[in-house]
């Protein structure tokens, strides 16, 4: 089984749109929506839920006010400022480190389990999918991402799928790292804007840090062709293959309004722009499949994909 993660650094580059399109092309893959903060793939793929599982996040301290003498040691020792003046715990501050439980001379503090979100296994018209809902303001989104990926691998085994397609979260922090570790290939999306290029560089630094083979794609390339050339030059310099340039088109939104992938939309709309867009996505997908194939892996070991000048 192979795993492909689609990330972008910057939000709104088209990760979910492309992941959905790939799912309608791949035929034999499991989807993993790892943007657990704002999970949008289900809006297009309308999953039927098979199973929901609670994800236990970091535990939450709880002070027994009957035992508490108000000595204030817990408040002093807590590095996260989570003990409030009336000796209750601010759940958004507490990281469940348990320091207060050992520091309390009265043994008045204990840790309670806390549900940080739900991981969901589903089935869609393009195959199985794992996704999640993170509780508002919860910390452990990396943990929930891991659980979603675990569910996706289970689904892949059960439905004998050869590929896990991961729709990644934006940024470079904990959830993104959880979404890309151990994948076989990362596709970084960019757009020809100052932020698009800046965030592409940061995303590539991250994949280099984890030594994961990385390829790139520019979305909305014709919005600013000069910036697109800068991105191309950067990719060339960094040794990142640039696999496709997608045009700035309203059809991505139109397809989203109809709750369809761009491939589905192009197939029935008959709009020439949509068909052209879908064909570029098809070519991109063919490139990705080739890079994920076993023969490619043998001939191009990860060492050959050097990363320079980041």
């Amino acid at each position: 089984m192979r795993q492909l993660a689609i990330i972008s650094g910057k939000g709104g580059c088209g990760k979910t749109t492309l992941t959905a399109a790939f799912s309608s092309l791949s035929g034999n893959s499991v989807l993993a929506d790892c943007d657990v903060d704002a999970s949008d793939l289900p809006l297009i793929l309308k999953p039927q839920v098979l199973k929901t599982e609670d994800c236990l996040g970091l535990e939450l301290a709880s002070i027994d006010l009957k035992l508490c003498t108000g000595c204030g040691i817990c408040r002093e020792i807590c590095r996260f400022g989570a003990v409030l003046e009336n000796f209750t715990i601010n759940p958004y501050g507490c990281e469940g480190c348990a320091v207060c439980t050992v520091a309390c001379p009265e043994n008045a503090v204990s840790l309670m389990p806390r549900v940080s979100g739900q991981a969901v296994s589903s089935i869609t018209r393009f195959g199985p999918m794992a996704h999640a809902k993170l509780g508002t303001g919860e910390e452990a989104s990396g943990k929930l991402v891991n659980l979603v990926r675990k569910k996706a691998v289970e689904l892949a085994d059960r439905y004998s799928c050869k590929l896990v397609l991961i729709d990644g979260p934006p940024g470079t922090g904990c959830p993104v790292m959880a979404a890309i570790t151990g994948t076989d290939l990362v596709l970084v999306l960019s757009e020809p804007t100052v932020s698009g290029l800046h965030d592409l560089k940061r995303a590539i630094k991250l994949t280099a840090h984890f030594r994961i083979p990385t390829v790139a794609c520019i979305n909305k390339y014709d919005l600013n062709e000069k910036k697109s050339l800068e991105i191309e030059a950067f990719c060339r310099e960094a040794g990142i293959p640039l696999l496709a340039r997608l045009p700035y088109a309203d059809i991505t939104t139109e397809a989203m309004m109809k709750e369809e992938t761009v491939i589905e939309y192009a197939a029935h709309s008959g709009d020439s722009g949509a068909v052209e867009f879908a064909n570029i996505v098809r070519n991109l997908w063919a490139e990705l499949e080739m890079r994920l194939s076993e023969t490619f892996k043998k001939e191009m070991c990860p060492k050959a994909l050097r990363i320079r000048g980041t």
Binding site: D37, I44, G137, P169, G173, T253, M256
Partner: peptide, 24 residues
């Protein structure tokens, strides 16, 4: 997003402006 870092920002605010677009 809506995870911990976002709450750290919103928690300090007197007013929150949510930027959105009218798509699904």
């Amino acid at each position: 997003g809506t995870a911990c870092p976002v709450l750290a920002v919103m928690g300090c605010a007197d007013y929150c402006v949510l930027v959105t677009e009218s798509t699904p």
